[in-house]
């Protein structure tokens, strides 16, 4: 009977929802620690359950895709914050845009080059290109360019967690830290998780970070598919 239940899309949809809620509880319990975002704990719970029950991903996906469906409208909805951010940064528009463009292409360029020389598997290199944008956009880019969307999501999550941990400290060492510089660097390099770190640092940091990650996402989605 259990085996039968584990084949149902509803079961896995419910498990995913439960895993997310549990992850959210954990995140709040840990004082919103940026190293354990709900998406990571939720992911760990779901994958360990899949592994323990020996359920093929294809079965899980039938339930899971009901949630993935919403990524489309979420990406379209990014136009709203993008509009507000563009409004606010009018004065320094050029400087900020240049910094975001050059900075984000630097980190992606180096990552692509390293992957190409160290690993040399084209599909991983292609997927690596979308590592610096927020997950829904990264997944869309990976699908578009023939990368692996699950791997793209993993790269994004890992980058975010490492970036959130090291960037504020790194910029302090080089005396480059300021609400603007640290906020924007966090947004460019560590997108979502970085922005949650920026919120801990202060409101000004958070505003710059949220703006930088939205701009990076839009920019890369428009640029990368042509370059790859």
């Amino acid at each position: 009977m259990l085996a039968n239940i584990l084949q149902q899309p509803t079961t896995w949809l419910t498990i995913t929802l439960g895993a997310y809620l549990l992850g959210l509880k954990l995140y709040q319990g840990l004082n919103q620690a940026s190293w354990l975002p709900p998406v990571l704990s939720g992911f760990l719970i779901v994958t360990s359950l899949l592994w323990v029950t020996d359920t093929p991903y294809a079965v899980y996906e039938q339930g899971g895709q009901l949630l993935s469906f919403f990524l489309g409208p979420v990406v379209v909805g990014l136009a709203v914050p993008l509009f507000y951010h563009a409004h606010k940064m009018k004065k320094q528009f050029i400087t900020i845009l240049v910094a975001i463009t050059v900075g984000s292409l630097t980190t992606v360029g180096i990552a692509i080059a390293l992957t190409h020389y160290w690993i040399g598997i084209d599909i991983i290199t292609t997927t690596m290109a979308s590592k610096s944008v927020t997950t829904p956009v990264a997944v869309a880019i990976a699908e578009q360019t023939g990368g692996i969307s699950a791997l793209a999501a993993a790269f994004v999550m890992t980058t975010g967690i490492i970036g959130a941990a090291i960037i504020p400290q790194l910029l302090k060492i080089f005396r480059l830290d300021s609400p603007q510089a640290t906020g924007i660097s966090l947004g460019v390099c560590a997108h979502a998780v970085g922005t949650s770190r920026a919120i801990e640092l202060g409101q000004e940091y958070a505003a710059y970070s949220a703006m930088a990650m939205t701009v990076t996402a839009g920019l890369h989605a428009l640029l990368l598919p042509w370059l790859l």
């Binding site: 895993a19 997310y20 994958t47 899949l50 997944v139 993993a154």
Partner: peptide
């Protein structure tokens, strides 16, 4: 709700 929407795709990592 974005983190919730992302979990299923991330779980695809199990195939990689």
């Amino acid at each position: 709700l974005l983190p919730l929407f992302i979990i299923p795709i991330s779980a695809g990592l199990i195939t990689q």
